[in-house]
Amino acid sequence: MTATLSPAQQAFGDIAPALADLSDRVLFGEVWERPELSGRDRSLITLAALIALYRIHELPGHIRRALDNGVTREELGEAVTHLAFYAGWPAANTACAIMRDVLSQPVQP
């Protein structure tokens, strides 16, 4: 049954159904689908913000989304390296550990 639920519905739909609905319809529907930026560009921007703001809970899902949007493993590593100088070494170090974990998992269809 959880396979039919969106990631937002799975994560917090039982606690905050309106937030899950807004995430699905507005954030991942309207905002992510605007044509002015590609999904790939939006993924890189989002990863940079999440790493810089130390939003570690959201990072795994957005790493997977970035890969789905065409960001390569090498580009992920380069982004983290670049961010180390702007967001701080601890933030980059933590992002590397999370990326290692996500990248070691089997790709889901």
Rank of each mutant, 00 (worst) to 15 (best):
G77E: 10
R34M: 11
L44W: 01
A84W: 05
N69R: 07
L103D: 06
S104F: 00
I63L: 14
R73L: 03
G29A: 13
E30M: 07
Y54E: 13
Q105E: 14
M99A: 15
L44H: 01
Q10N: 13
A92F: 04
A95S: 09
A49I: 14
N69T: 08
I15D: 07
R55H: 07
D68Y: 00
Q105L: 10
E30I: 12
V71E: 07
I45M: 15
Q9C: 05
T4L: 07
S104D: 15
T2D: 15
S43Q: 09
A87I: 06
R64F: 04
G88E: 11
T4I: 07
V107F: 02
G70P: 12
R34F: 05
G13D: 10
A84Q: 12
E58C: 03
L103H: 03
P90D: 02
I15H: 08
H57R: 14
E33T: 15
G61A: 10
E74H: 06
P17K: 12
I15Y: 13
A3N: 13
T81P: 00
E33G: 03
G39C: 04
A8T: 12
L83P: 01
A3M: 05
R42Y: 03
C96V: 12
D68C: 03
R65N: 12
G39P: 12
G70F: 08
G61K: 05
A49R: 02
A92G: 11
L27R: 05
D41W: 00
P60I: 02
A95G: 06
P60H: 09
A18C: 01
D68T: 10
W89K: 01
E78I: 00
I51V: 15
P106A: 05
R100V: 04
L19D: 02
A87W: 05
T2H: 11
D24T: 06
S104C: 02
V31T: 11
A97C: 06
G70V: 09
H62C: 03
L103S: 04
Q105A: 15
L67D: 03
F85N: 04
T46Y: 02
P109I: 05
P60K: 03
Q108I: 11
A97V: 08
A87H: 08
I15S: 11
A52Y: 03
T94Q: 12
L22Q: 12
L37M: 14
R42E: 02
E30L: 11
P7M: 08
R34K: 13
P60Y: 05
E36S: 12
T94W: 00
L27F: 11
L103A: 07
P7K: 04
S104M: 04
S104Q: 03
D101V: 08
Q10K: 15
Y54S: 15
P106V: 02
N93E: 08
